[in-house]
Amino acid sequence: MPAVLLRVNGTTHELDLEPQVSLLDALREHLGLTGTKKGCDQGACGACTVLADGVRVNACLALAVQYEGREITTIEGVASPLQAAFVAHDGFQCGYCTSGQICSAIGMLAEHGDDVPSAVTEHLAAGGVELTDAEIRERMSGNLCRCGAYNGIVAAIKEVAGADAAARVPAEAAR
């Protein structure tokens, strides 16, 4: 079997993987990083969301071998105020979609910071889209939660995004 060098949460792992092994199964079955969940294995639920070089992707549709050389971050490598905010706002029940929701939210906030628009963005040319509830909901729609914790998830993200924005404003004003 070919050796695959996977860099996950800052550590490089040399794994013997057939090319058909998905990034998700490499994480769960070969690295024991079971925080990343399998909900559909079809790109239809978002439970397997991880960050590849900071960009959120579905690990179930990613072949591990394709992600050689990328910096993969899983929930085990996340230290974000979102985690405490999810607890405070009860942004989960069973906890199974939670890792994906949190990784997705991290990626989403980064996309928003990079001025990526969404399907509900009113004026595409304008830039600097405000992260309203509608924007958060649309941008997080790739992460299903069957327990229905959507309200809590949006509240948690808003809290953290708001704190981020608040932290940014004085920094910019100082310039």
């Binding site: 990626g107 729609s141 790739g142």
Partner: peptide
């Protein structure tokens, strides 16, 4: 070409669009 941006953003999920 805003229709193209909107069309892409209407498809799949952000994760899938990133891939």
């Amino acid at each position: 070409y805003p229709m193209l941006a909107q069309a892409i953003l209407s498809g799949a999920s952000a994760q899938l669009r990133n891939m």
